[in-house]
């Protein structure tokens, strides 16, 4: 297991987990979300191959209602 920070909270994940794996874990696999890893935007085509590492800072964002 390794530890990452996901949306501000520490989380233990399996070694070798990809961004897509994380999206499935949090129920965001079918949503229109943006993913930022260590300040870099991760485009959809890269999410199945990008393996997360210890201490990665991951942000998953989506649109909500706002004025």
């Amino acid at each position: 297991m390794i530890t990452i920070t996901l949306n501000g909270e520490q989380r233990d994940i399996h070694d070798g987990s990809t961004v897509d794996d994380i999206l499935s874990t949090i129920g965001a696999e079918k949503q229109r979300v943006a993913v930022v890893v260590n300040e870099n935007i991760i485009y959809p085509e890269k999410r199945s191959s990008l393996v997360l590492r210890e201490n990665d800072q991951v942000e998953v964002l989506s649109f909500v209602e706002g004025g």
Binding site: N7, A28, Q31, R32, V64, G66
Partner: peptide
């Protein structure tokens, strides 16, 4: 629209 951290509870109401 506004940008916020993804919230699993909003899955049913994906904007």
């Amino acid at each position: 629209v506004a940008l916020r951290r993804f919230n699993r509870e909003q899955v049913e109401h994906d904007l």
